[in-house]
């Protein structure tokens, strides 16, 4: 059982604040993804949980035990590093066994665990090799096997797939998900890749500027972004935003069209590109670029002078310069407060 609690953790490097008072609870056996652009503080937060960095203020609890003053080895964690950190001077077997040797585990148990995790990661034929003789993908597997062999309460992963080529990344992603679900450990996974985050996570914590902007399950994060940043960061292409002018209580005018919205002083209209239906009425859009992508067609248009994207059925192939009308699905429209940038 390992619930992770992060209580008001902040970190400053000189005058730079990497983390502003972060609070986060990760449930036992949960797969939590920390998602954000580079420099958002996600890796710093992971390293604080690992014990490789000390928080300036705040507390870290793992499994009901306060650990922020403990060295990494006393925290019951294992980690997969971005560059794998597979020891070059040890064979694959000894790399996987490294943590077990440090615990002075007896040889029979070491062999059992190394064999089992190597089989799990399909590297049993590589056990006698050195890391210099392995491909990037194989090193990645060794790094994961080394973490799993510890049978830790918590596995921390720092962009583990970012150094693999696209095809291998896809394959490893699915495999990781399966292996980690079976291992029943609590996992914290750092990535800047939203697709990776969506596909792996039980819950995603979207980070920006040293703060957690939203922590929720992937569908919730996608459908109901808590902040404008989340909508603009997640989704490919991201959400469309349009200025709205008030037209009575709960009524807003967007690009000449009337919409029901929240009762507020100011609001910004937002809609995802796939939630638009072409028709005779709706937001008037002048087509700029047409990109047929196979299953659908991506349209870049201009609505009220703003760039605007729509994903349409691939049977529809407008030409640049055409005027279309996009009717937004009413239940998919979101509103943000322009001042606080949060959802209304």
């Amino acid at each position: 059982m390992a619930v992770i609690e992060i209580k008001q953790v902040a970190k400053t490097f000189g005058s730079f604040t990497a983390l502003h008072s972060v609070d986060l609870t990760i449930a036992d056996q949960e797969f939590m993804v920390l998602l954000g652009a580079s420099g958002c503080g996600k890796t710093t937060l992971l390293r604080i949980i690992a014990g490789l960095e000390t928080p300036t203020t705040g507390e870290v609890w793992i499994g009901g035990r306060r650990v922020d003053h403990l060295p990494p080895r006393e925290r019951g964690i294992a980690m997969v590093f971005q560059n794998y950190a597979v020891f070059p001077h040890l064979t694959v077997f000894e790399n996987i066994a490294f943590g077990l040797r440090m615990k002075k585990m007896d040889q029979a148990e070491v062999t059992r665990r190394v064999t089992r995790t190597a089989e799990l990661m399909h590297i049993e034929q590589l056990l006698k090799r050195y890391s210099g003789e392995l491909s990037g993908g194989q090193r990645q597997r060794v790094a994961v096997a080394r973490a799993l062999a510890m049978e830790p309460d918590v596995i921390l992963m720092d962009e583990p797939l970012s150094n693999l080529d696209a095809l291998l990344r896809l394959e490893m992603r699915a495999e990781l998900k399966g292996v980690l679900a079976e291992s029943k450990t609590t996992t914290i996974y750092v990535t800047h890749d939203q697709v990776e985050a969506m596909s792996l996570a039980d819950r995603i914590s979207v980070m920006n500027g040293g703060r957690i902007v939203q922590a929720a399950n992937p569908v919730e994060v996608y459908r109901n972004p808590a902040a404008r940043f989340v909508g603009s960061f997640i989704g490919n292409p991201p959400m469309n935003f349009l200025a709205a002018t008030p037209a009575g209580p709960g009524k807003w005018q967007v690009a000449g069209q009337m919409f029901d919205g929240p009762v507020a002083a100011a609001a910004e209209f937002a809609i995802r590109p796939e939630d638009l239906h072409p028709g005779d009425t709706g937001l008037p859009a002048e087509v700029r670029v047409v990109e047929p992508l196979g299953p659908h067609t991506l349209i870049t248009a201009s609505v009220a002078g703003q760039p605007f994207r729509a994903i349409l059925d691939s049977t529809l192939l407008p030409a640049p310069g055409d005027l279309l009308h996009f009717a937004p699905a009413p239940d998919r429209i979101r509103w943000f407060d322009p001042a606080t940038q949060t959802a209304l």
């Binding site: 990494p72 080895r73 950190a85 490294f98 040797r101 440090m102």
Partner: peptide
């Protein structure tokens, strides 16, 4: 690279073990 020392820390090496099992062999 710093990551090797960090990996040793995370995987339970004490200071002496880290020196003996990671730094020294990589310093050959």
């Amino acid at each position: 690279p710093k990551e090797y020392g960090e990996a040793a820390d995370v995987f339970g090496a004490s200071r002496w073990q880290k020196f003996r099992r990671v730094t020294l062999p990589m310093l050959r």
